[in-house]
């Protein structure tokens, strides 16, 4: 499979996430679009790691070239899990204070 197919797929997925962040007002859906963007980058990292493996695989079938990409994906998942727990706590706090999860209410933070 040529690598550009996966690049374009991840790009479109990332752009859908960007459009969701820009157009929706519900804080939880904005948060889900951020998860969408994280997953697009994860997919691209795995694809690139297999691309590096492809070059080394011809010479040595047990080569570990490109394994760093998959470890990066693992660490991104770790950070995403921590981020979600704190972010959802912030959203619950926002709802408790304003009775709404509309992100436009957050502009009172500037005062």
């Amino acid at each position: 499979m040529p690598v550009q197919y996966y690049i374009y797929l991840a790009l479109i997925l990332f752009s859908i996430g960007v459009i969701g962040v820009l157009t929706r007002r519900n804080a939880i859906i904005v948060f889900m679009c951020i998860e969408l963007m994280l997953n697009a980058t994860n997919l691209l990292l795995v694809a690139f790691s297999q691309m590096h493996q492809n070059i080394a695989y011809a010479a040595n079938k047990a080569s570990s070239a490109g394994i760093e990409g998959q470890l990066f994906v693992f660490f991104i998942m770790v950070v995403a899990a921590a981020e979600v727990s704190v972010g959802l706590a912030i959203i619950v706090m926002l709802y408790r204070n304003t009775r709404s999860v509309d992100i436009n209410f957050l502009n009172r933070l500037k005062n």
Binding site: M1, P2, V3, Q4, Y6, I7, A47, S49, Q50, M51, Q53, N54, Y57, K61, A62, S64, A65, G66, I67, Q70
Partner: peptide, 13 residues
């Protein structure tokens, strides 16, 4: 990235 291909379903990493 011309002619770079992805190894599908093989490799042990």
């Amino acid at each position: 990235i011309a002619n770079k291909a992805i190894l599908m379903g093989k490799g042990s990493i």
